[in-house]
């Protein structure tokens, strides 16, 4: 089978694959940044002493963590136009789906991060006259994010792989691009192998980097 492995077909289609990788990066980047921002809001809600807020955030997290990602993607991709939001478009709806889904996971990571900072630090901030939100902004969250950088990055690597699920709605990310070429040129083995190697190298290199970070932060 590997005797007639054709490297040329990969090299000939680097442009298409690269365009797909840009979509993959875009999805990862938007879901990461959006998920962390929204996840921070959710985490603060979960830790709020106002029951309504913590209840709402808690159920949100439960809902998304109990639903397969692929279903969330389907739902936003096909249901958005039906409820009258055609303007968002295919890419837009997928970006929203990923951001909302990731936020549920980031919420729990960030909540644990905030709780890793001692209560006495909150008291120290408040004793100086800082408001609750100022204390969070300048004292607690910077420390919390420091503590959770490795976990956040590990989740980002999972997210990077999960973006390949947009295949199901035909959005041209890296995997979908590879698949298109594979089917068009009838070179399935070459293209799937190339895709696997690219995913592996990127993810493995990233996790080695995270492991090193973790050691640095551990000191």
């Amino acid at each position: 089978m590997f005797a007639n492995f054709d490297y040329q077909v990969i090299l000939d289609n680097v442009g298409i694959l690269w365009d797909g990788m840009l979509i993959t990066f875009l999805l990862t980047g938007v879901a990461l940044v959006g998920g962390i921002i929204f996840g921070t809001v959710l985490a603060l809600m979960r830790l709020s002493r106002f029951k309504v807020l913590s209840f709402a955030a808690g159920r949100y997290v439960d809902a998304f963590r109990s639903t397969p990602l692929i279903l969330v993607i389907f739902w936003f991709y096909f249901a958005m136009p039906i409820i009258g939001l055609q303007a968002i478009g295919g890419l837009g709806s997928v970006l929203i789906a990923f951001t909302l889904f990731e936020a549920a996971y980031y919420c729990e990571i960030i909540r644990a991060g905030i709780q890793s900072v001692t209560r006495a630090q909150i008291h120290a901030g408040q004793a100086l006259g800082l408001t609750y939100f100022q204390t969070m902004q300048y004292v607690i969250l910077p420390q919390a994010f420091r503590n959770m950088v490795p976990v956040l990055l590990t989740q980002a690597i999972v997210l990077f792989q999960d973006t390949s699920l947009v295949y199901v709605v035909g959005l041209k990310d890296f995997l979908t691009a590879a698949d298109l070429v594979a089917v068009r040129d009838n070179r399935v083995v070459e293209l799937y192998a190339a895709a696997a190697v690219v995913y592996f190298v990127l993810c493995f290199a990233s996790s080695l980097w995270v492991r090193r970070l973790r050691r640095q932060y551990a000191i």
């Binding site: 006495a120 008291h123 120290a124 408040q126 004793a127 100086l128 006259g129 408001t131 910077p142």
Partner: peptide
């Protein structure tokens, strides 16, 4: 206004509670 009231009373803690970052 508790933040305002607290800003007028200095407090020093057993474990210092400086902001480590």
């Amino acid at each position: 206004n508790l933040p305002k009231l607290r800003s007028r009373i200095g407090m020093v803690f057993q474990n210092f509670e400086l902001f480590p970052h």
